[in-house]
Design a protein around this nucleic acid. Structure first.
Lengths: 304, 304
DNA sequence: CCACCAAATGACAATGTTGTCATTACGGTC
DNA sequence: GACCGTAATGACAACATTGTCATTTGGTGG
């Protein structure tokens, strides 16, 4: 493989001048620049990133830890933005900033030891910063890399590590306000497990928004802890919907914890003989494109 | 940041011995090894990948070009294995082989110039090989990297570059045989655009399998060129299905070009008053998990 | 035509590691 | 206790680049 020396010899200049051309430094005469460029093309010279890094200690690499790749086959939790979208945004930002993105996949299980290993690899490659993205909104405990900027996405530690978080509460509030504006005064809530951060935030926001609007607890029956991914859970969902339908003052709208629940719920409601949205309105959450794409009718939902 | 010199000094050995310990070379006395390990831990020493690469010219990096990340928001062509699955498999193989996978995203548009740039970046990082994955089964023309092993996935060039390809024909054949075994003697085929490699292979395989079984052309009406992603295309699909239903000898099964078409087709067939599978059987292709996951009833399909 | 200044170019060190080869330490044998 | 062979360790060069500083070049004004 050709080096600066080969290029320099062919172009009849010093290696330093080759370096200047490669790095687009000013103060190289255009004629010299051309000669060097031609030599580079002819020899198919490629700067050696290792040597470069060693001398300049700027790797131009950003490290990212996510489960986007390995989780492809897993059943998603269906709450929030999926990891691959986060990777996509980071990727794009890196491209714009001229940085190379080095993605380390965390693997299926979340193992702190593993993360430490990944961080060590990043450190060896002298990445300029690390981004850690969690698969869903939650609290985590990470071994902090010394001297390396770290940003969390979709998660937070108790410390002051900067993080980018979805506004689960804000979305829910907007959704409720939307329903209120449409005239609904009795709204049921069939939500996620409230031990999940997203579930708690959304549930709290739902209750607060309803209370703020003066709706009583009776007018806003609330059920949580369903995820609609298992057979059992679907049975629970069915029971809940029957209970809701049997209420003396039946709600005119139901907020589901996510789009999957909303879809399953709609199927069940129709089976019970209710028309949507004539008899009852339905809202989801997350705007899960994999799902929404295949729905027969539009669904009111929230994009984070 | 600590270097081998710092570690060597603290452990009271030469830098070479530190190197040996770091690289798990034999012939280091256990007591020495421990002393060095302790020094490494204490100083939080991380080998400098750049210096390492420069000396040993083994980067341990495999480069991959795919559209898996950037295509997340795009409408997939719904034919074959989606890119992210390919990345996942490559990722896993790299992990097992102890290699680092460097993923370069090709971006939405397929631009040969862009690929050349990505290849140059890979070359600068002295990757040990390059994997190029196409979003769907097709022929491509790539600028060949000199001296770098290249493997194509989901695509082929006219040259002798090694490639890994889906067996579109084999899958279709198995599917037809399955239907034959179930007793079907009149099978319709509503397939993909046959200008697409996958479409052509599947269509050819369908016709061959039917001919081999002695089914006449009349018994195997064939329609191609639908993708079920656009409004227009859905109208076409509807017309085709009506035509099929109106046949004097109605087929007892329909093979659709992919799962999306199968799903839309089933909706339409039910609307026309046909029961599935009592009145007519339906088969898809690709086992598109994003879609199949949400179907109400099981679908006969093919996993590549 | 010379002196001068800025622009252009070059010489050389430094970066952190591993490969090569030399040297030292250790354990056993006579 | 001297000798020997192997295991363990060390000294030093080499890798390909960029930073620092020195030198040369070319143009301009007197």
């Amino acid at each position: 493989m050709a080096t600066v020396f080969d290029v320099a010899k062919l172009a009849g200049v010093s290696i330093k001048t080759v370096s200047r051309v490669v790095n687009d430094e000013p103060s190289v005469r255009p004629s010299t620049r051309d000669r060097v460029r031609q030599a580079i093309d002819k020899l198919e010279y490629r700067p050696h990133s290792g040597a470069r890094l060693m001398r300049s200690s700027k790797s131009g690499i950003v490290g990212m830890i996510s489960d986007a790749v390995s989780s492809v086959l897993e059943d998603p939790l269906n709450a929030g933005l999926s990891s691959i979208h986060i990777v996509r945004g980071v990727q794009e930002a890196c491209r714009e900033a001229g940085k190379i993105l080095m993605i380390a996949d965390q693997g299926p299980e979340e193992d702190d030891v593993d993360v430490a290993t990944l961080l060590r690899t990043f450190e060896s490659h002298r990445v300029e910063g690390v981004i850690y993205a969690a698969p869903y909104h939650r609290q985590i405990a990470l071994p902090l890399p010394r001297g390396l900027p770290l940003v969390l996405v979709n998660c937070f530690d108790g410390l002051s590590t900067p993080s980018v978080l979805p506004d689960d509460a804000g979305g829910q509030q907007i959704l409720v306000e939307h329903l209120l504006k449409a005239g609904h005064r009795r709204i049921a809530y069939v939500g996620l497990d409230e031990n999940m951060v997203a579930g708690r935030l959304r549930g709290d926001a739902f209750r607060k928004a309803c209370a703020d609007a003066g709706l009583s607890g009776n007018a806003t029956p609330t059920y949580v802890g369903i995820d609609a991914t298992s057979e059992d859970s679907l049975n629970d969902l069915h029971d809940i919907l029957q209970e809701i339908c049997a209420l003396s003052e039946r709600p005119t709208a139901i907020c589901f914890g996510n789009d999957l629940m909303a879809m399953r719920g709609m199927e069940m409601l129709e089976q019970m003989g209710l028309r949507i949205p004539e008899d009852i309105s339905v809202a989801g959450y997350d705007n899960d494109e994999n799902l929404v794409k295949y729905l027969k009718r539009p669904l009111t939902t929230v994009t984070l």
